[in-house]
Design a protein around this nucleic acid. Structure first.
Lengths: 156, 156
DNA sequence: TGATTCATGTCAGGATTCTGACATACAGTG
DNA sequence: CACTGTATGTCAGAATCCTGACATGAATCA
């Protein structure tokens, strides 16, 4: 009946979307009491691991447009979670850094987020986890790089 | 330096989000020439496989709110892709069905979407695919069902 | 039977994100 | 050195989606 369709019940793409949706909901749930959105948290986490990231780099890392990230950064800066130099040291790039307050805020969030990740991984062996990791990486790579003869718009 | 963080480089959650993002972009890319969004396509595909689905069921299947799905359905109905009875046969539920036009439209989209899925799965063995499938299913189940003592707000 | 609870469809308002556009700064090429 | 191409930060407008709220219909239960 649905042999010519994609068959959502067995589609890895659909399952991927579902998993992502459920993960997003779970993260929003634990982040909400902290007054933080997922993108908000992603931004802070990115900055903790790679201080000095620019707005555009942050946007790519959080999977939003640089315009959206810019709006967020302005808020975070105004509220004292991050700092940006008034003038660009080189070019137009404004390296962003966490303030102590931002770092404290992130610590709370990290605990919450980690609990979600732990819950998500519950019931999976190490082998299954690394298998899933490799599978996801492979999918990303295939989707980013290769085209099926579509006359590559090239992308990045 | 980032050992007390979540370490985005090795986080399955982050990778999941990345994969989902890349998949979404790839789908939008092939669906755009057809004038169709991902939710739009999801709705049609859902209806093809399970005719008579209600607005709310469609919303859950496409991972959006029923309000958003309602807006989409009104457009699709107005443009002749789906039909809904003027009055509910039972209760308030309005069973939705694809029109021939909707079915034709879906066929085009299915070809496009399947090509993306094929590309995504390129380079993965059958075993890896079914492994990824099981892993994703496990994550969804763990995230949906179990709580780490957070006192389940039970979703809705 | 009557009350409570739950799910659905829908309307209205608000928040978030995106698309489009512009000026600027660096890198590569002739 | 001038020119082209790419990348960045930012502003403005539009589109999208969500949260909140309401009325209705069905199911559950006393």
């Amino acid at each position: 009946m649905n042999q010519d369709g994609v068959d959502l019940e067995t589609s890895l793409g659909y399952l991927l979307k579902e998993a992502s949706s459920v993960l997003r909901v779970a993260m929003e749930e634990v982040l909400r009491p902290l007054g933080m959105s997922v993108t908000h948290y992603s931004c802070l986490e990115l900055l903790a691991q790679r201080p000095g990231l620019s707005n555009s780099e942050l946007a790519r890392g959080a999977f939003v447009t640089r315009q959206s990230m810019n709006v967020l950064l302005q808020t975070l800066e105004r509220e004292g979670y991050v700092t940006r130099p008034a003038e660009a040291p080189v070019g137009k790039v404004l390296p962003t850094r966490l303030t102590p307050r931002g770092r404290r805020s992130l610590e709370e969030a990290t605990v919450a987020v980690r609990s979600v990740e732990v819950r998500m991984l519950a019931g999976m062996t190490e082998a299954e986890q690394s298998g899933a990791f490799r599978a996801l990486r492979s999918m990303i790579h295939s989707l980013r790089g290769g085209n099926t003869g579509n006359g590559g718009s090239g992308g990045a």
